[in-house]
């Protein structure tokens, strides 16, 4: 029989660790023996099988998804635009600086409360995920632009390469790792902050509201089942988005037919 590879071994170890954690959880829940304090993983699994029957289940998922994804995309686009502007016009970098530092350092909870005064609760998660994403994307892209290759700039200058081609052949390949790392970090953060905003603002028809209700009614199995769903959607959407982004940015790397 063939020996498992090191990668397979790693996966086996990880699966083992998950199984061990679940066992620990199961034993702890059985010991505590309180459905309010801690339910067993089996109870959560059972609830996951039936939770889709809850009224507005799919619409809640869709509501939260498009608000957080919308905020993420807005932060992504504006972060890139502002970084390009700040790189082109240095005084703008100074002008943007207090805004970006404030956004980064003010706690998310404070922003949520402030925004509750200014915005309708329905748009809260868009704005919060936008705020989480914007400074990270801006900073990463600006760093990438600043570390631009002088030699390649000179090459483009002497050959009078058009701005579009410069973008395609020089700038995008250079910025690719900066953008991908920023998106990898912010995609998960946007979900966490967006759902936190929904739990505090409780917009009707959102997953945050579902979590809030589960907590109110002390339905711990519902609370954990919704948490599992949020984590699953967050991970899936992050993977899909990064896959699409890599494809888009990597398109120019593909082989060209002579």
């Amino acid at each position: 029989m063939e020996k498992p590879s090191s990668l397979q071994m790693l996966w086996l170890k990880k699966v083992g660790a998950i199984f061990l954690a679940l066992t620990f959880w199961q034993i702890a829940a059985m010991k505590i023996h309180s459905r309010i304090l801690l339910v067993t993983p089996i109870a959560v699994l059972k609830r996951l099988c039936t939770i889709w029957q809850v009224e507005n289940f799919f619409s809640s998922i869709w509501f939260t998804f498009y608000h957080i994804a919308g905020g993420f995309l807005l932060g992504l686009i504006l972060g890139i635009l502002l970084a390009f502007l700040a790189h082109k016009i240095p005084v703008l970098e100074i002008l943007f600086w207090p805004w970006m530092v404030t956004i980064k350092s003010v706690p998310v909870a404070s922003f949520i409360v402030i925004c509750l005064v200014w915005l309708s609760v329905n748009n809260l998660s868009i704005f919060i995920s936008f705020l989480i994403v914007l400074p990270v994307i801006y900073q990463n892209i600006l760093t990438g632009l600043k570390s631009g290759n002088r030699e390649m700039k000179e090459m483009a200058q002497i050959f009078r390469v058009s701005p579009f081609r410069k973008l395609k052949y020089i700038i995008i390949p250079h910025l690719r790792p900066y953008l991908l790392s920023a998106c990898t970090v912010t995609a998960g953060m946007a979900w966490k902050a967006g759902v936190a905003a929904e739990i505090i603002g409780t917009p009707s028809g959102s997953m945050g509201k579902m979590l809030f209700l589960a907590k109110t009614y002390l339905a711990t199995d519902d609370l954990l089942a919704w948490t599992v769903i949020i984590v699953a959607i967050s991970v899936i959407s992050e993977k899909v988005f990064l896959y699409v982004l890599k494809k888009l940015l990597g398109e120019s790397k593909r082989r060209d037919a002579a």
């Binding site: 030699e151 390649m152 052949y169 390949p173 120019s252 790397k253 082989r255 060209d256 002579a258």
Partner: peptide, 9 residues
């Protein structure tokens, strides 16, 4: 000073 990710062509 070539664009490393792209082909010679």
């Amino acid at each position: 000073r070539l664009c490393e990710d792209f082909s010679a062509v």
